[in-house]
Amino acid sequence: MSVFTKVSHAELREFLKQYPVGELIGFQGIGEGVENTNYFVDTTDGRWVLTLFERLNVDDLPFFLGLMEHLAAHGFASAMPLHTRAGGALTSLNGKPAALVRRLTGQSVLFPDLEQCRQVGRALGELHVIGLSYPGRCANARGAAWREQTGRLLAQKTTDAAVRALIEDELAAQARLDLGALPQGVIHADLFRDNVLFVDDRLTGVIDFYYACNDALAYDLAVTLNDWCFEPDGRLNPARWQAMTAAYRARRELSEAERAQWPLVLRAAALRFWLSRLYDWTFPREGDVVHIKDPEPYRRILVHHREHAPPAW
């Protein structure tokens, strides 16, 4: 959610005329995240989030926006995209595809408690069940082919022999994993702490569906556990892990195939975010407000999974 494309007050005021939102009061760029330009927007008729899509395939944008509408229509705590007076959810601003969604209440948490972990696990299970009825299709842009290609590029680029060895060894290990053979569905693929909102211990919103895609459901659970259940120094928090997995399994139980592949699935999820952060660290992008996340925590998580078996189910 960095700011790569600047928007002036006059440009935004003109843009908002196509929506039934009243008059512009104010707006502010959002610095977190790394992919899109985002602004908080306040108008006389509500509070909104404006997103300008910087690098996403424009053909995939209807999938993301349609998924958010589908989930919200089924009672899931997802932001609802706003339609223009002409009826479309996807528009453009300053040469970039753009969308306006209702801003949800609540704040993200840095140090979640057990009840918050339970609610996230339950919400992820709900998302996976509700998503089965969503007809849209979108491939995972950060899937196995991307991990292989990006890993090879970074292994060639780095001067750190230990980093190179870890990338090459993990890519060889991941060749044994076929996520396509595991139960599939719509996944969020980025359900990190900064993408879930709470008011106290009540989950009020799941946001940023712009990595959502069709992929292995267990992979999505692994992505979520890796963020919510590890400490900054790479240590696992067993209580959070147990709270989240138990809540998820109350809504959707894992298959025998998922359990058998689980250690490699956890490693695939850790590898994906280590590589993406390492890539952004190695090839930084210009922007007005750009947030580049440290790759080191995900290297530690990957190493943990390589050296320790996951907690028993």
Rank of each mutant, 00 (worst) to 15 (best):
V41T: 06
L225E: 12
N140C: 05
A123G: 14
S8V: 09
P135S: 11
Q149T: 13
G287R: 05
V223Q: 06
G131V: 02
E256Y: 09
R13N: 15
L254R: 14
E168M: 13
R122N: 10
D194M: 06
D190I: 01
P112D: 06
D280Q: 11
E286A: 15
R142I: 12
P284Q: 09
A181L: 02
A86P: 08
G136M: 00
L104E: 01
D201R: 13
H9G: 06
F283P: 14
G136I: 05
R202S: 04
G136V: 04
A173V: 09
M1P: 01
R252F: 15
D194V: 09
A212E: 05
L65Q: 09
A145C: 10
A99Q: 10
P284E: 11
R47E: 12
E23N: 14
A189N: 11
L100F: 06
F192A: 00
R47A: 15
Q28V: 07
L302F: 08
R118L: 03
C117T: 06
C213W: 09
L82D: 00
G131C: 05
P232T: 00
A155M: 03
G234T: 10
L225G: 02
F198Q: 01
M80L: 10
L225R: 04
H304Q: 01
L191M: 15
G29W: 07
V120C: 01
R137K: 05
G95H: 13
R13F: 12
L132K: 14
V199Y: 10
N36R: 03
G31A: 13
R202K: 08
A239D: 03
I30F: 01
G136S: 07
R55C: 09
A181R: 12
C138K: 15
I167R: 13
H304C: 00
Y298E: 01
V199G: 12
F63L: 00
A144W: 09
A181N: 02
L191R: 08
F111M: 14
V101R: 12
E69P: 06
R267I: 05
I130L: 15
Y134S: 04
Y210V: 00
N140D: 09
I301H: 01
A246Q: 15
A145Y: 04
L153Y: 10
H188P: 12
L61S: 02
D220W: 10
